[in-house]
C-alpha cells in the first residue's frame, strides 16, 4: 500500500469499505477459536463425567466440572499469547461478555447448589447456555445459531425435567458439539 497514491472519491470509498469489512471478518474469525476451544472442552468433560458416573454409579464425578474452567481459561490465555494481538470490535466484545456472564452464572450456581442450596443445576445451566448461544446468533446475525441455541435451551429444559441421572450429561455433550459447530460456522462465514 502506497501512502501518496492519488485516489478518486470512488477509490477512497472502496478502500474504506474493503478495509472495514476485512477487519470485521478477521476479528470475528479470530473469535471462532474460543468457540472451538470451549466446545471441545465441554464435549470432552461431559463425556468423561458421563462415562465415569455410568460405570461407577457415583454422581460425585460431577466435581470434575470444575476442571473445565481450570483447564479452559489458561488454555484460552495461551492461545492468544503467541499470535498478533487481535483487536476487539463491538461484536467480538459483546460475544465475550455474553459467554463470560454465562460462565460466571454457571460456576457460581454450581458452587451454591453443592454447598448451600440444592437446586436443579442441569436445568438452569442448559437454559442459560441456550440463551447465550441464541444471543451469539443474534450478534453474529446467523439464524442457524439462533435456532440451535433456542432448541438447546428449550429442548434441554424438557430433557432435564424428564431424564434423570447421568443421561442428562449427554445434553451438555450436545451443547459442546453445538459450540464446535458455531465456531466452524464463524470460520466459514468470515472466511
Amino acid at each position: 500500500m502506497e501512502q501518496n497514491k492519488e485516489m478518486t472519491a470512488s477509490e477512497s470509498l472502496q478502500l474504506i469499505t474493503e478495509t472495514f469489512n476485512k477487519n470485521r471478518k478477521d476479528i470475528l474469525r479470530g473469535s471462532a477459536k474460543y468457540f472451538l476451544l470451549w466446545g471441545a472442552l465441554l464435549t470432552a468433560v461431559s463425556l468423561v463425567i458421563y462415562l465415569l458416573w455410568h460405570n461407577t454409579g457415583k454422581p460425585q464425578w460431577n466435581f470434575l466440572w470444575f476442571a473445565m474452567p481450570a483447564i479452559g481459561y489458561p488454555l484460552a490465555a495461551l492461545m492468544g499469547k503467541y499470535k498478533t494481538v487481535q483487536p476487539q470490535n463491538e461484536v467480538s466484545k459483546m460475544l465475550s461478555y455474553v459467554w463470560s456472564v454465562f460462565g460466571a452464572f454457571a460456576v457460581t450456581l454450581s458452587a451454591i447448589a453443592i454447598t448451600l442450596v440444592p437446586m436443579h443445576v442441569t436445568l438452569i445451566i442448559v437454559i442459560i447456555m441456550g440463551l447465550a448461544e441464541c444471543m451469539s446468533g443474534v450478534l453474529l446475525k446467523n439464524w442457524a445459531i439462533i435456532i440451535a441455541g433456542f432448541l438447546l435451551g428449550i429442548g434441554g429444559a424438557v430433557f432435564a425435567m424428564t431424564v434423570m441421572g447421568e443421561a442428562q450429561l449427554l445434553f451438555f455433550t450436545l451443547g459442546g458439539l453445538l459450540l464446535l459447530v458455531t465456531g466452524l460456522i464463524m470460520k466459514l462465514q468470515y472466511k
Binding site: M1, M7, L15, N23, R24, Q88
Partner: peptide, 26 residues
Amino acid sequence: HSELRLAVMSILAGVDEADFTYLKKQ
C-alpha cells in the same frame, strides 16, 4: 486522503485499539 493513512483510520475506527503488527498485517 492518502491510501495508507485512510486504511489505518478505517481499521482503528472499528476497533478499541490495534497494535502496530496488526496494522502492518492488515
